[in-house]
């Protein structure tokens, strides 16, 4: 009698386990497409050479405060011809710098269309408080795009913005961040 009961619960548990595997592991994998960066880039290596973020990320519109993606011109400053034997670098020089074409960098933290963000309002904060620790990273963060919504996975979430605003005594009115 009791062994029959046991046999009755096993399929149930297996079913739950299978559902959890699908829900927690397979579905999130299927939901997001991983976009790879067009060119390998190491912040760690370049920060040893340059020492400041502004050379590649400063934005004239926001008065030399880091925000924009680097342009090919920034790379051409040093990479007009290949410096190393790296094939990635050769491709950079051949495909983008010589042709004066922009590298289609994939912003891994792009906010959705309905969010307004300004780096200028946050200029007293460390980049690290909102971004990966780039300075010590040897590769670029991969970009995961949600197949259904088109949103990126690693963007800062609303509750993270709001938590800091509350802590810093800054307004959390909807229209501060939304458009």
């Amino acid at each position: 009698m009791s062994s029959k009961k046991k046999g009755g619960i096993m399929p149930f548990l297996l079913g739950i386990a299978a559902a959890l595997v699908v829900g927690w592991i397979i579905f999130p994998k299927v939901l997001y497409v991983q976009e790879t960066q067009p060119v390998r880039f190491s912040h760690k290596l370049h920060m040893e050479q340059i020492g400041e973020c502004n050379l590649c990320h400063s934005n004239r519109e926001e008065r030399a405060y880091a925000t924009r993606m680097p342009s090919t011109k920034d790379c051409a400053l040093c990479h007009y011809t290949a410096l190393t034997g790296s094939s990635e670098e050769k491709e950079l020089v051949r495909e983008y710098i010589k042709k004066d074409k922009q590298v289609p960098w994939k912003a891994s933290q792009k906010q959705p269309d309905n969010v307004y963000f300004s780096h200028l309002a946050h200029k007293d904060l460390e980049c690290r408080q909102c971004h990966f620790d780039m300075e010590n990273r040897d590769n670029l963060p991969p970009k995961y795009v949600n197949r259904l919504t088109g949103y990126t996975k690693t963007t800062m979430k609303m509750h993270e913005c709001e938590r800091c605003h509350a802590r810093e005594n800054t307004s959390n009115a909807c229209y501060v961040c939304h458009k």
Partner: peptide, 27 residues
């Protein structure tokens, strides 16, 4: 931002211009 079907919208006094004006003032 562009509105999809199924939501209500209204004049915002061009609120984005307010955001940009604040940004310029900060700059």
């Amino acid at each position: 931002s562009v509105r999809p079907r199924g939501v209500v919208e209204k004049c915002t006094f061009c609120h984005h211009r307010f955001q940009l004006a604040k940004r310029r003032a900060r700059a």
